[in-house]
């Protein structure tokens, strides 16, 4: 194979696993080369990106500015120039409902953490089976798995509610967490299957020669290599659960168990007054944790095969 004639399909992985030039060396070389042709295009890229970011962010900035305005001025004075600085929306909003806002943050955190653990464990197990093992009816089970995410929640929530109410689970976090432990978020199984299929099979086979069984291959080879998929699952589960209004509305009735979306909704009444100042202030408070987690957690997203290194 001549080198200039690039294969449409990447070369078999064995080639580079076996040739094994130290990865760090190559990477340094590449970085130095990249640094040389930078200045102009780099500035242009930043300008474009900043412009795009401003467009993306306008509504969010508007919300933050409004959260610092007196409530009655929010819709009377358009624009995002702030002429007053009303922190009272935050202090009042924090205590506006039956419990201080930290109660709702904590409740949401419990549901979110439970859901994340559930999804990570159960979905990765199932994904390993679908991606790596041969078993009877595999295609059918996979199809069934996809079908389970095709029904809109509005028609399954009522039977689900009846089921959980018979179990006595309504008004606990169980109906929100236990399904995740049982891999009902099939999206993530599918996501992980796609990632595992991107991991060269030679690695499993090599481990098998060493006498490793499936649990060990799964835990020691596959899991470390699918960190980006696990991180994606974590981030998505976090956001979806943190923002999920409908199922939390249906399953939680005690105000002491209310989560952030339920608390935010309790501010509004379209028929009479909604304190938008406080609503926006608490929305900003609710947005902060997910934003920070994404900001600092994203380095795990990009810890792929390329960075973990393959021995």
């Amino acid at each position: 194979m001549t080198r200039t004639d690039l294969p449409t399909e990447p070369a078999p992985v064995t080639e580079w696993v076996v040739t094994g030039e130290p990865i760090e060396d190559i990477r340094d070389r590449r970085r130095r080369r990249a640094a040389m042709r930078k200045p102009f295009t780099s500035i242009l890229r930043h300008v474009l990106l900043i412009a795009a970011a401003a467009l993306m962010l306008y509504p969010v900035i508007w919300m933050v500015v409004s959260s610092l305005r007196p409530n009655e001025l929010i819709f009377r004075e358009p624009g995002i120039i702030l002429d007053s600085f009303e922190v009272s929306n935050y202090t009042d909003g924090w205590n506006a409902l039956s419990y201080p806002f930290n109660v709702y943050l904590l409740n949401s955190a419990i549901v979110v953490i439970g859901s994340i653990i559930g999804n990570l464990v159960s979905c990765s197990l199932a994904a390993y089976a679908f991606a790596r093992l041969e078993f009877a009816g595999k295609k059918w089970w996979f199809a069934i798995m996809l079908v389970t995410i095709m029904l809109p929640i509005h028609v399954v929530i009522v039977p689900q509610y009846i089921l959980f109410s018979q179990l006595g689970w309504v008004n606990t976090f169980l109906p929100l967490i236990v399904p995740k432990l049982l891999a009902t978020d099939a999206f993530f199984i599918f996501l992980m299957v796609q990632f595992i299929r991107g991991i060269p099979r030679e690695l499993d086979e090599a481990a098998r020669i060493d006498g490793a069984g499936h649990p060990r291959i799964f835990a020691q080879i596959i899991l470390p290599l699918m960190v980006p998929a696990l991180a994606t699952t974590t981030i998505f589960t976090f956001i979806w659960t943190w923002n999920d209004f409908f199922s939390q509305l249906i399953f939680l009735t005690k105000p002491s168990l209310y989560t952030v979306p339920l608390a935010l909704n309790a501010f509004q009444d379209s028929q009479s007054s909604t304190d938008f100042g406080q609503l926006f202030a608490m929305s900003v408070v609710a947005l902060l944790p997910i934003f920070l987690i994404f900001l600092f957690g994203q380095k795990y997203l990009i810890k792929g095969i390329a960075t973990t290194g393959i021995k």
């Binding site: 992985v13 590449r30 390329a306």
Partner: peptide, 20 residues
């Protein structure tokens, strides 16, 4: 985000070979 994670699954080795 999913694309970003996917991009990092691509072994750098392929790019090294190609740019060489």
């Amino acid at each position: 985000v999913i694309f970003l994670a996917g991009l990092r699954q691509i072994p750098t080795m392929y790019y090294e070979a190609a740019s060489v």
